[in-house]
Design a binder for these strands. Structure first.
Lengths: 310, 310
DNA sequence: GCATCGGGTGAGCAAATGTCCACGCACAAA
DNA sequence: TTTGTGCGTGGACATTTGCTCACCCGATGC
């Protein structure tokens, strides 16, 4: 077996050639190689690479009094590739903070999608209660909706999934109340007050999944802007101080309340990209999130924002 | 680049996934990985494995007063796989003994075929004179004929190829003489006396490439057997003491003479398999070869033969 | 003696991989 | 500005590789 491994990895022969040399099928050679790697006969080492920028993490943590800051170095240039990289590496950092039996709230969003999908099945499983923090944005469930993400997270970690059987917005306040009074939702909303940790995305008004999916009417949008909205968490819009904007829209949302998040001991804001710096800054100012997962460029932009805004 | 290498080798991601994470094509990722291996960012180590059996080499060397003994451990069970393995590993040992500008004689045979084909192009090239030691067995040149092997060896080592433009046997002595008197052959035959090294196969009467390719008539075969032939080198048959068998056949062969081999300072016999033990033993006894390349089982059988024959 | 079970093996397939080629871009020279 | 040169990149192809399935062989139990 050692011989096979050397022929393959050091001499650069193909599996076919090796199979011919020792008189077995190529399949068997492939199996030998797998076994050799598992048994440590073959050792592959790569120069160390730290995907996290410790210095930026310290600066962010100090500047914004964060419980925990995770800054991921990114190689990609497009938003898509940055999200992937952040999700991949951040999942490791986030997974480390999970404790067995915790109640974890989870929102939706593209970056969270990447993060959740990068989770490997834990061993031993953490078995958390995973609570969906906001309703579905559209009638067609998308892979980045809180429902899907919560379901997957619970499944990966061997936990229980508490779904919020409702749309993210109702047409008016009355309808909203009917929804949230339903027994199912009451049960789940009770958990909103008992979260050990929450993972939420941070959206800006400019590039929001809500806008992209036509969840907001033009009128809603204009009103929110007039009310000073610059950021969004769990479908709730807030202004530059992190205060929720007072429009009628506020009473139609079905999701965790921002005050509930404020009371949660660890709310992890997951975001990326320099263009969301103002939204993130406001969320931090309003103590909406207590920890941050962000990409390098986003972190730099956020610190710059902090300089400008004092 | 380090990041890419870690994702691939340690995290086990596919090249496609990595490409998606950093926003380049899969081709580029493949190139990164190649570069990372070349630059030593990725290091692959495998437990040491010595394909040569040093103990058997020492025993063979002592018992038969060999200049050099190479015993290759083999995993395969069939003759074919044993030849491949012996050829592959022995090529390294043989290559180490080449000196620049040497004159090297080369016979044909299946094991030599594997050995020659395992040679990598040397750097710097040894540039030897490669002399074909025997004519072609059949009218159709086979890949294992001395012609082909010599041509390839010369090409790999950047040397000159001296071909023996003749069949391995003539129909009678007169014809043979006509052949070997040709100017081409005289030139090459002169080199037979000036060999620095010769690589020859050792065949047995039972399993000889000559018999398999119908080069010998049944009558020839019977006469040789009566004359005590048990082994063959370069188309010349010898008895249990390593003396060339005296049949008319002897005068029809076109190849290096056994006495010419005896005068060469290093004749490497390349063989494999336990069934040729008697032939090899006789060759050693008659000092036809001074070094040996053999597989482990063959070596053990040879030592056992030595016990029996004293 | 015969049937059944488990470990190991090879054929075949789908996916992953390496490599060639052509294109585009940047930089230098005319 | 245009032309030429060279590097880096992505697309496409052929090959290589991992994996599933069915099979065979030996061992065990009835």
């Amino acid at each position: 077996m050692t011989s096979v491994a050397r022929l393959y990895y050091l001499d650069g022969l193909g599996q076919q050639e090796i199979a011919g040399m020792i008189g077995v099928s190529r399949s068997t050679v492939s199996r030998f190689l797998t076994a050799a790697r598992e048994r440590g006969i073959v050792r592959i080492s790569v120069d160390p690479y730290d995907p996290r920028d410790a210095m930026l993490e310290r600066r962010l943590g100090d500047r914004f009094k964060l419980r925990n800051a995770v800054v991921i170095r990114t190689l990609g240039r497009t938003a898509e590739t940055v999200r992937r990289t952040v999700g991949y590496y951040a999942s490791i950092a986030v997974a480390q903070r999970f404790q067995p039996g915790q109640t974890i709230g989870l929102a939706g969003g593209r970056t969270l999608y990447e993060l959740i999908h990068a989770f490997a099945a834990c061993d031993p499983p953490v078995r958390p209660r995973v609570v969906q923090l906001m309703g579905n944005i559209g009638p067609t469930t998308s892979a980045i909706d809180a429902t899907e993400l919560s379901r997957i997270l619970a499944s990966r970690l061997g936990g229980t999934f508490y779904t919020l059987n409702a749309p993210a917005f109702a047409s008016d306040r009355r309808t909203r109340d009917v929804f949230i009074d339903h027994e199912h939702l009451r049960t789940v909303r009770k958990l909103f007050g008992a979260l050990d940790m929450a993972l939420v995305g941070i959206g800006s008004l400019d590039e929001s999944a809500f806008v992209e999916r036509d969840a907001l009417t033009a009128a809603d949008f204009a009103r929110l802007r007039r009310a000073g909205a610059i950021g969004e968490i769990c479908g709730r819009f807030y202004d530059r101080s992190g205060r929720e904007c007072e429009t009628d829209y506020r009473d139609r949302v079905i999701s965790v309340e921002l005050d509930e998040l404020r009371r949660c001991q660890e709310v992890v804001g997951v975001t990326n990209g320099p263009r969301r710096a103002r939204a993130v800054f406001a969320a931090l100012k309003g103590r909406l999130v207590s920890s941050l997962v962000i990409d390098q460029q986003g972190a730099e932009a956020l610190l710059a924002e902090g300089m400008n805004a004092g």
